[in-house]
């Protein structure tokens, strides 16, 4: 791969991702509307698609207010971290054969490291806002992340054992005959749950909890700083969906009548849709219930899964 090609891939991936994240504003609103018996945005442009443009422009032109009681530099830094860390995670994702920014042999570990990094934006944002609601949101966010990081990592180890690699392209290649969702169903379900908690989407949007903490850790943010949290959330959904596709649903693999990239995108949007459907249907558990559920139920299950996978893998390989 030449340097020019590489640069083109980087720019292309960045461009597409940011557009997907922005486009998801429209997708989410239309899908929610569909499931909630309403119309949703349908005025600007065909099917209301220009709402994306309007929303983005609005965010850019809103007053970018930094509260006088806030810790100024941390307050500015926090939203950048969330977008930065999620975008960095994407560099290890193989969208199709050859279309990957950096084919790291520690792909999964890099992804886990970056997603842990994202929690700093919540904690720092909530702390720097110097607002009680934001602080409560940040506290909830931090404990939720700590709880769910642990078994997010553990749930992936089964896949690593079966494929024998941390490299995502290798993992996809290892699914040539059978997707890992078949051999690792428990791992998939737990990774999905952890992924929702990780992106703090409903039903696990506890750090924001609109009806309790109003907006939680980003209560004081406005303008494009809020926009960064917003985009960060959509990028997070895209990232978790992309990881699910790569790790459990054979990545770009699919029947040959469509190119590999198309298969990847189709699968990706299926899971993004699932995220939105969850938001439309489930209530939110209480913060301590979520944490308790994580430590008391999911952790034992994921450990058992690891043990059984290891035993079976050893047995088969003799």
């Amino acid at each position: 791969m030449s340097a020019t090609e590489h640069i083109l891939i980087v720019i292309g991936v960045l461009f597409v991702l940011l557009n997907i994240a922005a486009g998801l504003i429209w997708v989410e609103r239309r899908l929610l509307a569909l499931w909630q018996d309403r119309l949703g945005p349908n005025r600007a442009g065909p099917l209301g698609i220009f709402i994306v443009l309007a929303d983005t422009l609005k965010l850019f032109f809103k007053e970018d207010w930094i509260p006088p009681f806030a810790d100024k530099w941390v307050f500015i830094l926090a939203p950048a971290i969330v977008v930065g860390s999620v975008l960095l995670s994407f560099i290890v994702i193989p969208f199709a054969p050859g279309i990957v920014v950096a084919d790291l042999n520690i792909g999964i570990i890099f992804f886990l490291a970056m997603s842990s990094f994202g929690v700093y934006s919540i904690v720092l944002g909530g702390w720097a806002s110097n607002n009680k609601y934001a602080l409560l949101g940040a506290l909830r966010g931090a404990s939720q992340m700590i709880a769910y990081e642990v078994f997010m990592g553990l749930s992936l180890m089964g896949v690593v054992m079966l494929s024998g690699s941390f490299n995502l392209a290798d993992i996809v290649a290892a699914q040539k005959n059978l997707w890992f969702v078949v051999t690792q169903p428990v791992g998939f379900v737990i990774f999905f749950i952890a992924g929702i908690a990780e992106t703090h989407r409903l039903p696990f949007d506890i750090p924001e909890a609109e009806s309790e903490l109003i907006a939680g850790y980003h209560a004081e943010y406005s303008g494009m700083k809020f926009g960064m949290f917003f985009i960060g959330e959509y990028l997070g959904i895209t990232l978790i969906s992309a990881m699910i596709v790569t790790l459990f649903f054979g990545g770009w693999l699919g029947p040959a009548f469509l190119p590999p990239l198309a298969w990847f995108v189709i699968k990706l949007f299926f899971f993004i849709g699932l995220f939105i459907l969850l938001r439309a249907s489930l209530p939110r558990p209480r913060y301590d219930q979520l944490i308790g559920y994580g430590w008391k139920i999911i952790l034992p299950i994921v450990l058992a899964n690891l043990l059984i996978t290891g035993a079976v893998a050893l047995l088969i390989r003799g």
Partner: peptide
Amino acid sequence: FAQDLGQLSPVFYMFT
């Protein structure tokens, strides 16, 4: 009530 608990959709059906 459902909305307070984070369930976003029922309120739309019920208001209908």
